[in-house]
């Protein structure tokens, strides 16, 4: 199979790249574009560390071909803060110590942002099921859930 030329938008910027037909979007982001915020924890869609959004929908970038991004809008962790202003979720994760090693954090933040966009007032159970696709091995999720609930409350007030 031959290389494919792709034009897409990543975090609002137009990006062009050439990728192999069987190359995943995760590999494109990490190896071709230097966007290493999305992490590879499993490459089978079971850990969520590579979470991104495509046209606003949450997905695992390991389950998407780079070629499929053509004409789409991709959102990654690198686009979450606006300049020097952190997204409320990013701030709350720091305040609540909702990360230990931090490898799952980018994926969880992208997933949590998507969750709050669809459901600005989630219950604890909704947060837990909303983040069930993101494995964290350090925290036991307690502080993550608290940080998301707290951020949701702050975002509702804003």
């Amino acid at each position: 199979m031959s290389a494919i030329h792709v034009t897409t938008k990543i975090n609002g910027d137009v990006v062009d790249y050439v990728c192999e037909a069987d190359e995943t979007l995760l590999d494109v982001l990490r190896n071709r574009l230097g966007l290493t915020g999305a992490k590879e924890g499993c490459s089978t869609g079971d850990c969520g560390a590579c979470s991104v959004t495509i046209d606003g929908r949450l997905t695992c970038s390991c389950l998407v071909l780079g070629a499929e991004a053509d004409g789409r809008e991709i959102g990654t962790i690198e686009g979450m803060a606006k300049g020097d202003e952190l997204h409320p979720l990013q701030r709350k994760f720091l305040e609540h110590a909702a990360l230990q090693c931090g490898i799952c954090t980018p994926g969880i933040l992208v997933a949590a942002k998507s969750l709050l966009e669809h459901n600005p007032k989630p219950t604890e159970t909704e947060v837990r099921f909303g983040l069930a696709g993101n494995l964290c091995r350090c925290t036991g999720y307690d502080k993550i859930v608290r940080a998301v609930m707290d951020a949701a409350q702050e975002m509702r007030r804003a």
Binding site: L35, G37, E40, T76, E78, M80, A81, F93
Partner: peptide, 21 residues
């Protein structure tokens, strides 16, 4: 006390460099 961690910003913005990065 419970101050913010010094490596925090890097870890919530995707900048922190891990083994495969």
């Amino acid at each position: 006390t419970r101050p913010l961690r010094p490596d925090g910003i890097d870890k919530v913005t995707g900048r922190a460099k891990f083994g495969a990065d």
